[in-house]
Amino acid sequence: MLEIENLYLEVDGRPVLKGLDLRIEKGECHVLLGPNGSGKTSLLLGILGFPRYLVTGGRIVFKGDDIDDLTTAERVKLGMGIAFQNPPVIRGIRLGDMVGLCRGDKSGEITDETRVLAKKLHFTEEFLERDVNAGFSGGEIKRSEILQLMAQDPDFVMLDEPDSGVDIENMELVGDMIGELLHRKELPSKRTASGLIITHLATISGYVDVDWAHVMLGGRIACSGNPDQVIREVMEGGYEKCVKECQETQNQILRNIL
């Protein structure tokens, strides 16, 4: 689905990613951990081709093609989708309109389909009339982002901290919906959607089963592995320690091979 090779990325002229490698296969769900400011959000926005996130080296291959030349909209049309960490307020566009736009419906009417989906995410009809993100609470933003993703139904789903600031009941709901987006109820071979989920406390891994975990440090993926193990090491010893242990294991394996 997605192959990132030796990626260098600058944000407004400032180097953020420095030789990042990441590979996500069809049907897989990956989580990405890493300290504040390490470049996790930048990675997602770079994958989407946001204007100020400039690839200065390496490449991003999506569904077999280098997507360097494509605009954000074109990448989205190829099947990418994102739930933002801090989305802007869009005045004059109602959440209900936005959900329609995600589905490719530009009529400006709030359809029954939209209402059904909104109900699933515990939004009232009145809520759909509100301007996108205007005065939404933290938890409402998360659900609204996921609502839009579900209307879009992309093959590659990026979620930037879907579990931050979400209460326990909503967490269950968010987990179920992400599971649905990523076809987690299907047999692994039947899953056609893949996911990359940024998380700090890995709360989401208690609600969605995850195939891989990565730690970002120094602008690279410094450690990858079994999610239970990686998450446990990060939670117990912090990022640096996890990365160190990861490298030791790797060296061990390399030694055994040679």
Binding site: T72, V76, F84, P87, P88, I90, G92, I93, Q152
Partner: peptide, 29 residues
């Protein structure tokens, strides 16, 4: 029009013109 708003709509599949149009319509609405 804020670049951030255009980018948000682009991430939902709208081209730059479509996004600007939607924002202007929203503004006048």
């Amino acid at each position: 029009i804020s670049e951030e708003e255009i980018a948000y709509l682009a991430a939902r599949g709208l081209s730059e013109e479509e996004a600007a149009g939607a924002i202007v319509r929203g503004f006048l609405n």
